[in-house]
Design a protein around this nucleic acid. Structure first.
Lengths: 412, 412
DNA sequence: ACTATTTGTTCACCGGTTGAATTATTTGGC
DNA sequence: GCCAAATAATTCAACCGGTGAACAAATAGT
């Protein structure tokens, strides 16, 4: 009735799992709370006893994951509550991003605050993967020194790459970078480790850029949406799918290839070999060509297009309208399929959102069957150009929050 | 950092949760095992102690969910193991299906064996929702009598409907039935209850037909795939999305509307108001029209088309090729987006699979970016016409298996 | 100063898992 | 045929961790 080759001895709930689960539960609550909650609030919110909450919180404070903030602004009678806050001196996440025209590195602490940030602009298409990684390692080393000077301990790293990444961290295909079968972990093994290691947590995760940027948007939590599609318009078009507050990576980690959704099946040929994919209609190059321009770098191009569009330049407006329509057709399909109610335009699309959203919304209202009961919101991303690096660092941090036992075991 | 309106006091892990989780874990293992496992095997597989396994299994046997089968075919020395088997006399699930041209009712026991099955053919388009439900209730009553005569207790029911169903069981839109805003639970409240009730489990779930059929395919487990797209070609085209072994229902339960994926965006107008959706190219009516026929009933039509195609009738072959291509374009988009590696053709597509699969596979190989690393299998469904009813009954049964405590509390 | 109120801790109790010892039931060697 | 080895399942004291109630701490209002 299921796969016989399932030797996984997982899922067993032993005695200690109880504590493990409640540690994660309370730490997650503290992380998600809009203001520092008290132990009593946590108890009523979770249904646990105040006694249990106290015991668990003691562990969290002892492990350096949570701090007590002395007097919360009180109201009414009674002993004042002591607020609980994610520690600003404990574990931190290292986020790395390799893109066509820049490298980005950042460090986030448990609370999600950016504690270090570097963006290194350069055209990386002619540079070899090994050389690019060497530069990333160099930036990461500086980031680590900076983080440790602030009392932080890097608990792991995540690397964003614009391409297909398999479960082992091998970049199968990154067309716009010119990468094919690049074994990132193997190449990094030649360098000293980027971060400290936490037993039970991965030291390095390599992941698609749009996926990590989507996680970044999720954790900023601006809209509070737990199900959305993040569309990243860089040179290619990627998408991150967030379902039930978790990234959906697909069976082999290759999900989100929205750039090759068919929009005009017998239309323009696409790099992928198919015809009429979204990318030759709404990719950066397509937009630039339609606007009568030639491209230099993605971020600059998007800004340039935005300036022209704001000035009312007709060819630019037409180009954006066409791209928006194509994007809307593709996104309508996704929304029909997954019943999402939020679409976030990120990457190069963010500065152009003002002109892209109307045609996208038009196609959505025309084509989404459930629209009358399930209206769809389209909004620009709140994070900027290094969204994927932020999301990468955030994913490391979230992993610690989701499994605090791993960190506590390390800290002793 | 997340939605402030989150008063859910869930997720707390209390002492009793431990037993609850382990009951579900072991019952799930017993259900998933290819042959009756022994307590010792369960202990080593899960990592629990034999003592714990014995205690938990005693509860399961006492509650009538599991039976001991005396001597398993032994090998080697030592005391022979006593196999554990899902009970054939305990709870059962009632599955109901309303479709355009038939009603189906079935009963599945815990092990997934069909213990009762009725299919009632009739053109239901001219019949009112209330009258249709009255007929379903009548069939369900007979099924219940039959099931109870076999020593089964119906633990709940699920109803499959070809349309958009919201979380409260209201059928928002079922175009091919002509339903709009039909409040099924309210209409059923006029009748005596269909099944017994288990505290903590829903008495009736209303769900999209393709979703339940997908669950049916999942639980037959023929291919062992835990991630797949089930495409149901009835009068409309629906799809059920199974990710990580669970149905993905979407934010509001409206997922899977593959019939309105754009395939030729400026092409044929569609009932939904859009243009160039999949349905006017690969729906039953479209295929029949292209083949030069007029339709009567879905199941009969599919068989008729299959016979003509097998005879080499040119118009039919061309019609199927065209439909397969359109289907392939749409499915390629889904596969690119979700990185699935299995596509199941069900409903009216199953008998036509022989002719549909080649063009679908062609489009997939042309358009799926990850195809070289993640080959896609397209296969016909193993369940027949009443797949959704089977899946519906199975979903009830799976719910009991996933949360045995609810049943045990009832049984005392 | 006294009471009401809310927070947080302490402690005896209890459910549930653990691990080792014990019992049960078979195969295989002598 | 009898005994040792092997494997399965149960029993029981110990322990871990959550529970609930009592208690101590800290503040507002009178």
């Amino acid at each position: 009735m299921s796969n016989p080759a399932d030797p996984a001895p997982v899922g067993a709930v032993r005695q200690a799992s109880l504590r493990e689960l409640n540690l994660a539960l309370l730490l997650g609550r503290i992380a998600a709370a809009p203001r520092p909650p008290s132990r009593a609030e946590l108890a009523t919110a979770t249904g646990l006893t105040r006694a249990t909450v106290s015991a668990v919180v003691d562990d969290l404070i002892g492990g350096g994951l949570v701090t007590e903030v002395d007097p919360a602004p009180r109201t009414g009678a009674g002993r004042p509550a002591r607020g609980l806050l994610l520690a600003g001196h404990g574990p931190a996440g290292l986020g790395l991003e390799i893109n066509v025209d820049y490298l980005a590195v950042c460090v986030l602490d448990l609370a999600g605050t950016v504690r270090h940030r570097t963006v290194h602009r350069a055209d990386l298409r002619p540079v070899s993967p090994a050389e690019i990684l060497a530069r990333v390692v160099d930036l990461a080393r500086q980031a680590r020194v900076d983080a440790e000077a602030q009392g932080l301990t890097l608990a792991g790293a995540a690397l964003a790459v614009p391409g297909l990444v398999d479960a082992d961290g091998v970049v199968r295909l990154a067309p716009n970078l010119g990468w094919r079968e690049v074994d990132v972990p193997a190449l990094l093994a030649a360098h000293p480790p980027l971060t400290g290691t936490v037993p039970g947590l991965p030291a390095l995760v390599v992941e698609n850029e749009a996926n990590l940027a989507a996680l970044g948007e999720l954790h900023t939590g601006e809209t509070g949406a737990t199900d959305f599609l993040y569309v990243s318009g860089e040179v290619g078009i990627g998408a991150g799918i967030v379902l039930d507050g978790a990234l959906y990576r697909g069976a082999r980690g290759f999900s989100g290839e929205i750039g090759h959704l068919p929009v005009y099946p017998e239309g323009r040929p696409c790099r992928c070999g198919g015809r009429g994919c979204l990318e030759p209609y709404a990719g950066q190059e397509a937009i630039l060509t339609a606007a009568g321009l030639t491209g230099a770098d993605v971020a600059g191009d998007a800004v340039r297009l935005a300036r022209l569009a704001a000035g009312g330049e007709p060819a630019t407006l037409a180009a954006l309208a066409g791209a928006g329509t194509a994007l809307g057709v593709a996104v309508a399909g996704v929304v029909n399929l997954l019943d999402l109610h939020t679409v976030v335009l990120g990457g190069g699309y963010a500065p152009l959102a003002e002109w892209l959203i109307p045609p996208v919304a038009t196609e959505l209202s025309r084509r989404v069957l459930a629209a009358p009961w399930s209206p769809v919101t389209v909004r620009p991303a709140v994070l900027g150009g290094d969204a994927a690096a932020i999301g990468a660092a955030g994913s490391v941090v979230r992993r610690v929050i989701a499994r605090p036992t791993a960190w506590l075991a390390r800290a002793g």
